[in-house]
């Protein structure tokens, strides 16, 4: 069994705060990290490696420094890594990204399962998993919280979260899954894998290696274009209530009643 994990390096938004005066992002000293949801994807793949001896390969598309994210995945126990990096990949939207990842997966075939995080925290689109699945003509189950192989690795029994609870599904393999936190907390790197991760060679594939023309990738290969970026409008009153807790409670109920909040 061969499991491919798709990950992304993103800016660490944990320490980012909104500047209340300018209402903009304070990005000073923000480092790059592996997208937190992708750590759950790595964990899901490693659980399959533990239980079935599956071979695991991690891929990412990004600038040369995205190699760090791949080395982190190797330190957690992933077997192999490939970096998809090419100047022509820059500025890709979800379509161009999916296209590039799909070609990389084809090059890694045979592949039984592809695991992604539910979305990346910088763009929050959640589109690359399903779009890549379509280009590979595979089913894609999103928001997966539990997975079990069945029928001699022919299919998988999946639990996926919905807006109102969850569903149990059976999906034929090969398939693409996007996973959420309930799949399992990421493990801690082991010493052996840590040492290996530092030395292991990571091949770099560019557009030509994937058989893609420069017009098919990056900004040129994208359908969507950003035409304007601006700060969101500030929120309303921002009023601190004053007085004793009883007075503030009274005032709050009055405000919420006058705003017709249901239940008040």
């Amino acid at each position: 069994m061969h499991v491919v994990i798709c990950i992304k390096q993103v800016p660490d938004t944990k320490n980012v705060r909104i500047d209340p005066k300018t209402n903009t992002l304070v990005r000073q000293g923000v480092e790059s990290i592996t997208n937190p949801f992708d750590l759950y994807a790595i964990e899901a793949a490693l659980q399959l490696k533990d239980s079935t001896g599956a071979k695991t390969t991690v891929i990412t598309m990004g600038p040369p420094q995205a190699e760090e994210a791949l080395r982190q995945a190797l330190s957690l126990g992933v077997d192999d890594a490939v970096l998809l990096s090419d100047r022509s990949f820059a500025g890709a939207d979800t379509w161009a990204t999916s296209r590039t990842l799909a070609e990389a997966v084809r090059k890694l075939e045979p592949v039984d399962l592809i695991v992604c995080g539910k979305q990346a925290i910088d763009g929050d689109t959640a589109q690359v998993g399903p779009e890549m699945a379509t280009l590979l003509n595979l089913p894609c189950i999103t928001y997966v919280r539990k997975l079990d192989l069945e029928n001699g690795n022919e299919s998988m029994r999946i639990e996926r979260a919905t807006d109102t609870g969850y569903e149990v599904l059976r999906v034929k393999l090969p398939a693409v899954l996007t996973v959420i936190r309930e799949i399992g907390e990421p493990r801690i790197p082991g010493l052996r894998h840590k040492i290996r991760s530092k030395k292991q060679e990571i091949p770099v594939w560019g557009a030509a290696d994937l058989g893609l023309e420069p017009e098919e990738v990056g900004l040129q290969g994208s359908f969507t274009q950003v035409v304007k970026v601006f700060s969101p409008p500030p929120r309303g009153e921002r009023r601190l209530l004053s007085g004793s807790v009883e007075e503030m409670a009274k005032e709050l109920v009055r405000i919420l009643k006058s705003n017709n909040v249901p239940g008040f």
Binding site: P11, V16, V227, K228, P232
Partner: peptide, 9 residues
């Protein structure tokens, strides 16, 4: 985008 701190058209 970026956790709602930037709007993009």
């Amino acid at each position: 985008a970026f956790g709602g701190n930037v709007m993009a058209t």
